[in-house]
Design a protein around this nucleic acid. Sequence first.
DNA 1: CGTCCGTTTGAGCCCCGTCAATGTATGTGG
DNA 2: CCACATACATTGACGGGGCTCAAACGGACG
Lengths: 231, 231
Amino acid sequence: MTANSLSCATCPVRDRAACAALDEDERDELARLGSHRTLRRGETLFAAGDDNATCATLISGALKISSFDEGGTEHILSLIHPAGFVGEMFAPLARHDVIALTDSQLCLFTRDRYEAAATRFPALGQALLRRASEDLFESRALIALMTGRTSRQRIAGFLMAMANAASDSPCHPAASFDLMLTRGELGSLLGLTIETVSRKISQLERDGVIRRNGSRGIELVDAARLGSMAS
Amino acid sequence: MTANSLSCATCPVRDRAACAALDEDERDELARLGSHRTLRRGETLFAAGDDNATCATLISGALKISSFDEGGTEHILSLIHPAGFVGEMFAPLARHDVIALTDSQLCLFTRDRYEAAATRFPALGQALLRRASEDLFESRALIALMTGRTSRQRIAGFLMAMANAASDSPCHPAASFDLMLTRGELGSLLGLTIETVSRKISQLERDGVIRRNGSRGIELVDAARLGSMAS
DNA sequence: CGTCCGTTTGAGCCCCGTCAATGTATGTGG
DNA sequence: CCACATACATTGACGGGGCTCAAACGGACG
């Protein structure tokens, strides 16, 4: 199930992931330390408290980073897109759960091996720093999206963010895309309930800003107005 | 106002800040690139959109990282404690404001010089990565603190976090401490209004969980109960 | 003393969470 | 093929928590 050596040559994220900072020889050496793994939707890569934490680069699909409060309700803290990196490099044990939102392909490493590689190849460490900074920015963007905003503003802002993420060009949002999240997951990401999420999406459709294809597909009818509703 | 060379020997955060990862010679070399600066409460180190972004290690005091939405209302995204690091290493221009919460002392570098140092001294880059990971964790902890919690839970959780940060020993919270934030700042950090913050703090005092010394001082009367109220 | 700034407290309303029922899609076994 | 179960989504009714508007209070500093 896991190949001994990774095939970077055909990797779809080979020039966007952290390992893209390495030259050919270095990447070959790194590749020999890792393996592939596929996750089905809902499978967890590792959970909070696990000590044998692994590091991974997401090749395709999508992941969520979640914490579960004492009541057992989930709080989604972050979404991971292809080329994204997950793993607790420094903490002795994982502090959050990492779960697949859709069927996903990962490039997998043990934590100590990846740590060693990061010190051995400074360019890799630097790329990880760049990526962590980006994650930090996105995390803060999520905070800004949630504080002091109504449910409609949050939904609108999230849909715009997803449309931008789904697009190839960084400036223009994609005209249509599929949500990888259930309503419940969307709620636990935005700090809303299932019902409120559903109601507000329905309302956005009634207002003619979006259209729904099934329960997951979203089509942007008036992206400009949707964007203005986020603020 | 800014000394030509930094005096690391007497620096109170010399073994906690990122530069603590360097050996003596490396740190001396880094020190020659930087300077000191003091900020008065309310002064901004740099603002969103600034291109001449600087990097800094906080020596004493406290900072906030804020964004301002189109309506001009502030959203505090993070608090920076001594030994903390601020600066946008990779973005061409700053994306948030950095403002002093109290009179603060900083160790200041231009971004390009610090970037060069991070590549020249791998240990520094690694320390920055460790710190960014920690910031990321705290940012996510803030998200978890805000989503799906009532105003009282948020206030209680924040007070516990501040008590823990104010304590020397990492496990036990400090018995009393001073808030560095106004009620308004507290609100914009926790996603509440000034009035709600004030009301809930009053309520916590009426319930005998805390006591107030002036408008800033907080004394923990029943830390265990306060902690239990956060969840 | 008066001004400014931050805090506190009150009254009223609205948004969103809760509870509940129905609708829809997918898979499973008879 | 149909009955059934499961999981997710939608919609409604209702109540409460927090935001809004408003006024009074307190300390710092001229």
